[in-house]
Simulated scan of single mutants.
Amino acid sequence: MDPSEVGRINRALNKMSKLYRVAKARKLAAIGLHPGQDVLLWLLTQEPDGMTVKELAARLSIEPPTATRTLARLEGGGWFRREPVPGDRRQVRILATEAGHALVPAIERAWAELAEEALGETGEEWREIALTVLEQANDRLRRIVGDDVLAEE
């Protein structure tokens, strides 16, 4: 790869990563969430029986203390509740409440708006090419750093 192309690719990926994070943070702030909280809450709503903190952390590819801190920050919203795990006093199941479920359409709308705004008027064929290239790059990077670095978003 030509050195100028290497620089251009690195600048574009770094810039996109930073801009995406800021844009996502702004969209989520409008509904009272921070990045990461959206994925955690959305995931909880997909599990009718809830999850333990350990299960939630594993699904998000984060450490249990990180999941615990994120839950603590979300606690004031009333978007989930904790229930004891029968037979294990040390464990609790985290379940999305009606308020948590009610927030999902706003989360999904924020995600959809961000995707639309990021790709703009790009045609379907070019979107498919862009997604294929990004997914292949993610797969190659995942092989280098491992599966546990980033949660699926």
Rank of each mutant, 00 (worst) to 15 (best):
E113T: 09
W79V: 10
R11N: 00
E5V: 15
R73M: 04
R89E: 12
S61C: 10
A99V: 08
R21D: 02
P35N: 08
L43F: 13
L74P: 02
A106W: 08
L131F: 05
L71C: 07
D139N: 04
K27V: 02
P65A: 06
I129Q: 10
R90V: 02
I62E: 07
R21W: 04
T45Q: 06
E47Q: 15
I129E: 11
A72N: 10
T97K: 06
R26Q: 09
Q136N: 10
P84K: 15
Q136I: 01
V149F: 01
N10D: 00
E98M: 05
L141M: 04
E124P: 05
R26L: 08
V53S: 10
T132A: 14
D88F: 13
S17I: 04
L74A: 05
E116S: 11
H34N: 09
N10T: 11
E63I: 05
L13T: 15
A12M: 02
I31L: 09
E75M: 05
A102H: 15
E98F: 02
W42Y: 12
A115L: 06
E47V: 12
I62K: 15
T70M: 14
R26H: 08
A137I: 03
L33M: 08
A67F: 09
M51Y: 13
E63R: 15
E125C: 00
A115T: 08
L103T: 15
T122M: 14
E55P: 11
L150E: 01
D148G: 12
S17W: 04
G36D: 06
I31W: 05
A30M: 08
A151P: 09
R69M: 03
L95R: 15
P48I: 10
G7K: 12
A58R: 15
R140S: 02
T132G: 11
K15L: 07
N10M: 06
M1V: 12
